[in-house]
Design a protein around this nucleic acid. Structure first.
Lengths: 110, 110
DNA sequence: TTATTATATTGCAATATTACGATGAAAGGA
DNA sequence: TCCTTTCATCGTAATATTGCAATATAATAA
């Protein structure tokens, strides 16, 4: 059906999967890497940097903004995007807790 | 079009997004959490644990197996799944490198 | 005002994902 | 052998995602 049954999962499980879903497209990974690399806000040069059409980039930026990982400042006709460092940090905490689950070596049945 | 243009992205970007995509569904997060919690192999009790039908669980397990995060041992009529600890560790390294990008506070334009 | 520039939104086509009933395959027990 | 249990696969319906052309919007420049 294409419709995820979110109601049967915990808040934490839904949060983790929502974050991961945003990272689940290479264009969004590339956008974030570029934002980190230039370590400053960017405007529309993402369209040139990544090889996708302007509406497609705009759509990916919307996803990133929706989950709070980036924010934008209007400066004239262009918009300056950058990482929302506080939200990025919070996201990292949530995701790291999931990734760092105990890897007990005592049990090795497989 | 629903078709991701993987060819225009780097190997690393595609790897990160492939991993994240697998985590992008709460059922798969729940399966992994359960596998960590019982810290031992499990069989088909995931169907009872999570509220999804058996074919659906089987499909999610397939995704997790495809990317190497879990492995299964046949024991009689049942199959015993568990985390592939080595692959989990490698995955964590890749993802952590992405999450731990430098958060330089010197630049605060937004 | 009109034109230009930068970004967002709309609408749509192609493809992917999610979920499950029905069925298949493989092993063990009666 | 036949039945049961356990899991995988197939087929299909409903929904989501991706990508882009066309268009809208908003700010500035001429």
């Amino acid at each position: 059906m294409g419709l995820t049954k979110t109601e049967i999962f915990t808040l934490e499980q839904n949060q983790i999967s929502s974050i991961a879903k945003v990272f689940g497209h290479p264009a969004r990974v590339a956008i974030l890497q570029h934002l980190f690399k230039i370590d400053s806000c960017i405007c529309g040069d993402l369209v040139g940097e990544i090889g996708l059409a302007q509406p497609t980039i705009s759509q990916h930026l919307k996803e990133l903004k929706k989950i709070g990982l980036i924010k934008g400042n209007i400066t004239g006709t262009s918009i300056c995007y950058c990482i929302d460092k506080e939200n990025w940090s919070n996201m990292k905490t949530t995701l790291t807790a999931f990734l760092d689950q105990d890897l007990d070596d005592s049990n090795t049945c497989c």
